[in-house]
Every structure is written in C-alpha cells, then in structure tokens.
Amino acid sequence: MASPLDQQAAAETAHDPTPPLLEVSNLSMRFPARGGGLLTRAKQYVHAVDEVSFTVRRGETLGLVGESGCGKTTTGRLLTRLLRPTGGQIRFEGTDIAQLNERQLRRYRREIQLVFQDPYSSLNPRHTVGTIIGTPLRVHGIVPRRQELAHVQELLELVGLNPEHYNRYPHEFSGGQRQRIGIARALSVKPKILIADEPVSALDVSIQAQVMNLLEELRDQLGIAFVFIAHDLSVVRHFCDRIAVMYLGRVIETGTREDVYGATRHPYTQALLSAVPDLGVARGATPKPKIRLSGDVPSPIAPPSGCHFRTRCQHVQDLCASSRPALAAGPRGHAAACHFPIETSPVVGS
C-alpha cells in the first residue's frame, strides 16, 4: 500500500511530471527532556517534529504555517541540516542528506540557504557588510578573490542597497536593510532553495511589504524555490503557491493556496483562517463566524494519542483517540490528516 507521501506525490505528478527538488518523508526530531535528578538519564522526549512529509518543486514556494511551538522553525533547521533529524529522509535532488556527516554535507550547504527571523542577531556586529557577504564566496569558491568586491556590490544592488556601503557595519543599517543584507548573504552562493524563517515578523509593518516584494522579485528573477515559514496567513496567501499547515509537530493539511484557503478540509485550518481579519466587514459585509478553540495546545512531551488535535476539536469522535489519521491525498494533491474532513468551506476574504 502506498504511503501518504507517495499518494500526495502521485497526485502532484499528474499535474507536474518534473521530479521534486526537495522531498521530505516522515521527518522527525525528538529532543531529550530532563527528568529526575541532575545525573538521571532522560527518558522523556519533546516531539518537536513528528513524521512530517511534503515536497517542493523547482521555483515553487511552500508555506509552513501554524501556531508558535508547532515545529515549523525546527523543520526549517532540519532542512538546512543545522540539526540532524532523529528519523526520516530529506531527499534533495534525489540524495538523502538527512544523515550525512559534515564533510559529506559540504557540497550541499550552498544549495539550501536560510534567511533568519531576526536581522539584528543574525549578522556579526564586528564584521563589515563586505565581509559578511564575501565570506561565503571564499568558502565555496564562487568567484576569484580579485572579483569578490565587485560581486558583493552586485549582490547589494540586487537586494536594493547602495553598493558603496559594503564597508559599513550592521549597526549602521535599519532593520529592513539588515534583513536585505541577510538575504544577499544567502543569495551569494547561488542556492536552489531558500528557507525563509519568519523573515518579516521582526520588521515594522511598513517595511514588511518592501521585503516581501523583494523576495517575490528574486523568486521570479532567479527561479529560486522557497520554504516560507510564517504565522501571518495573509502574507502566506500572497506569497506561497502551496501551503502546509502544522500542529504539534505534524503536518495536518497541505495543498495549493486556492485549496487550503478556499476549500479547507481540516478543522484546525478552518479555525486558523477564521481568525484572519476580514476586510469585507469594513465595506459592510456580514462578518463570518469566528471559531474559538477550547483549551491549550497539549504538551509535545506527552501528546494525545491518535489525532493530536482531538482535545480541541469540535468534531471529535471515539475513532480520533484510538487511531492516528493519515495525511490522505484528495483531489489535486489536497491532503488532510483527519478522520472526518470538512467537505466544503467558504473562501476567506483577502
């Protein structure tokens, strides 16, 4: 019997026969939780990422969304191999990089780059912008040393900064400019995929739109694929081609932007989307009912049996406690991990 990921991939392949750039299968990450005394061996684990599966095609943008603590940032760090997963596969262009050592990973480091959330702490305050962007060029041998300065200035211009500011330090720039420097550093090694971890959440609202427009221009101009991690559903809807919704370490719904926002199948996704401000109300439209989830998110150390969302779900039944729902693919690859998925859902106003 085919796995949920195989079913999903088959549905996607029917519409796009090209092989995926990145294929994640049953990816898991458990962190030991201290228990007992100082010298007691840990017997409990935090299930930060729990058998996550999805694919990313060349030039595609996948959005990872969910509440804080759902595991989306940990997933991003696993994809860049800043963390070694405890289980599962990360196949990049057909090669599983999940368990490669540092020496073996060196050739893949330049292919998958990370844009960090905080533009203030992600740049070394003792280095100039030229050094920050130029170091990856030297490490990976992108350009000869004599061409490094010109290449750094080209990258600064590409992200909308003054090329002559290569000798300035990070503290001389605003938050939005620092994030542009971080983007230029990630682009310096000519990656095929960018993991953008909440790239605009630490910026002023007026600056967020500028940085998002920059990312959209770079995607169209350079053909880079994105895994875009965010909690702002409006930004994700604008930027991403496909959406994967996470809850307590699991992907509980995934599909195209139109499917996830317009034909929601999972009750948790429906609750998330009901919280998005509806601009139609300001124009006199009748406000849509809000879905208020009861209780708090369960502990990732001892998650509920069966469906992790069952303790907060309004449609819970006995089967939800005894059986874990598979991420079953529906039409066009729209998949939901729910025993009783929603058949129809109103389109959320933009």
Rank of each mutant, 00 (worst) to 15 (best):
A9N: 07
A11P: 01
E12M: 10
P17Y: 02
S25F: 07
N26I: 12
R30A: 02
R30P: 01
P32F: 03
G36I: 12
G36C: 07
T40Y: 02
R41Y: 12
Q44E: 15
Y45L: 05
V46N: 06
V49N: 06
V49P: 00
V52N: 02
F54K: 00
T55N: 08
E60G: 06
T61R: 09
L62H: 00
L62T: 04
L62E: 00
G66V: 07
S68A: 11
G69H: 06
C70P: 03
L78V: 07
L79W: 10
T80G: 01
G87E: 03
Q89D: 11
Q89G: 01
E93C: 07
I97T: 09
A98N: 00
Q99M: 13
Q99F: 13
L100P: 04
L100S: 02
N101D: 09
E102T: 10
R103E: 09
L105H: 08
L105W: 05
R107L: 12
V115Y: 04
F116Y: 13
P119Q: 03
Y120R: 07
N124G: 06
T131V: 14
A150S: 12
L155R: 03
G160Q: 08
Y169R: 09
P170Q: 01
P170K: 05
E172S: 12
F173T: 13
F173Y: 14
I181W: 06
A184I: 06
R185A: 05
L187R: 03
P191W: 02
L194C: 02
L194I: 15
I195S: 03
E198S: 08
S201G: 04
D204W: 07
V205A: 10
V205I: 15
Q208C: 10
M212F: 14
N213V: 11
E217Y: 00
L218G: 10
L222Q: 00
G223P: 04
A225L: 04
I229D: 02
I229W: 04
S234K: 12
S234W: 09
V236W: 13
H238I: 15
F239P: 08
R242H: 08
R242T: 05
A244Q: 00
A244K: 01
L248A: 00
G249R: 05
T254M: 09
D259G: 08
D259Y: 07
T264N: 09
R265F: 12
H266N: 01
H266I: 02
A271S: 15
L273Y: 11
A275T: 14
G280W: 05
P287Q: 05
K288F: 00
P289S: 10
R292T: 15
S294D: 11
D296S: 14
S299Q: 08
R310K: 12
R324N: 08
R324E: 14
A326N: 02
A328Q: 13
P331N: 05
P331R: 11
R332Q: 13
A336I: 02
C338R: 04
C338V: 06
I342M: 14
S345D: 08
S345L: 12
V348C: 09
S350R: 11
